[in-house]
Design a protein around this nucleic acid. Structure first.
Lengths: 231, 231
DNA sequence: TAAAACTGTTACACAACTGTCACAAAAGCA
DNA sequence: TGCTTTTGTGACAGTTGTGTAACAGTTTTA
């Protein structure tokens, strides 16, 4: 099966560089490793070299076409289980059927939104690698698993209330980044909830207490006049 | 000019709530403050209230259209310098020309990727507020990261108070440039705060002390009768 | 249903930062 | 050189920002 690194790998097969880089940018922003290929031949080589966790495949390509790549991968035992998402500029029903017939797992018609694209990729990854899709956040010895709603520090379980959990999750998305109290209220409490900004301080205090209950340094940093950050 | 808070402010003018929130979410994720408006009238009010650092303007809107908002802002002296990015569903060259003719600084045709959108916003901000975008300011061995709010010299972390931090950030925007005490008060303290100009001297002293605490030359230069500069 | 867990607010203590001053030191000038 | 102007800086009091315990109200759990 596919690699077992902490990040899932996405093989992106698209001959148009601009298109390819936009998608790559978004995938990488979400923490996926991206392998690139600009035609069918490269794609087959790349798969042979290192099995990706999911393949995004453009229909129209010079040389070996996307549909042909798909057919070949789906007939080989060791690549059969890798989900394939087909991209196509054609919207005709005929093509959609043909795409899925050759074994593609999903089919996205251009033009599509990046959000839709990302959602489809996540969906396929969830099937094959349920634990690693956006569900696990780490920073140093702190680990948060959104799937099981658990937090551990240095292996020891840390019990957090819902608010502290979301707060920590927010910090873990971008360790080091300073969030103002207003931003934290926005993200953790929600856009139109009115709570005093000092409430943030109290919850920060509670999160600190929970994270240091078994010893260990305080991982949260207070930036006077600006807000808080993790690390 | 625009506000002097640590975050750049983006005014987002878009009548379609879903669209607006997607963009707002991404802007906020990158640390920008977002002001929202859902039509041209609101937009003009918002600008009057607090000058943003960049304006993102939908072309098609009920009431005062985007293009009209753009025209009005570009004819007023105090808003002329705020970069405007137009969004449009039309791809015809005609519109593009019309958009830029009214003074828009950039023009994005839907559908666009979020990555592209963010890149354009960053580009405009880089022109007008170089310090707060691109996240990292350097000069020789001094490095300031606005995102994480950290300063290092020769790799060693330098702890600065809020005022010293802003002061250094100002100098780093244009190393070598000499700022008068009045200019520094304007930029670092804010336009309508009244403090004695000698206060600047004291903070310069504190900044010097912090930057040389582990040895190293004093990177700040006193220009007698004129002010101070970095390097 | 009662107990436990969680929430937001407040008040107070404490720490960090601020601006001003006074005087010392340095730089310019005649 | 002596005199004037400008800058450096330690001290200090006042201000502002942050940490946290306590509490009452609410929600969740058993």
């Amino acid at each position: 099966m596919a690699t077992r690194s902490s990040q899932p790998t996405v093989l992106l097969v698209e001959d148009e560089p601009a298109q390819r880089e936009v998608l790559a940018y978004n995938l990488e922003a979400e923490g996926f490793a991206v392998a690139r290929a600009s035609d069918g031949e490269e794609a087959l080589l790349s798969v042979k070299e290192a099995l990706p966790d999911v393949i995004v495949l453009d229909w129209m390509m010079p040389g070996v076409s996307g549909i042909e790549v798909c057919r070949r991968l789906k007939t080989r035992a060791e690549t059969r289980d890798i989900p394939i998402i087909m991209l196509s500029a054609r919207s005709e029903e005929v093509d959609k059927v043909r795409g899925l017939e050759t074994g593609a797992d999903d089919y996205i018609v251009k033009p599509y939104s990046v959000a839709e694209f990302m959602a489809r990729v996540r969906k396929e990854l969830r099937r094959t690698r349920p634990s690693t899709v956006g569900e696990e956040l780490r920073h140093e010895d702190i680990m948060l698993d959104a799937q099981t709603h658990r937090v551990t520090r240095d292996g020891a379980e840390v019990k957090l209330g819902p608010t502290e959990f979301r707060l920590l999750a927010t910090f873990l998305e971008r360790p080091g980044r300073v969030y103002s109290r207003e931003q934290l209220l926005d993200r953790v409490w929600g856009r139109d909830i009115y709570v005093d900004t000092r409430t943030v301080d109290v919850h920060i205090g509670r999160l600190r207490k929970a994270l240091t209950q078994f010893g260990g340094d305080d991982p949260l940093r207070t930036v006077r006049g600006a807000g808080y950050s993790l690390g």
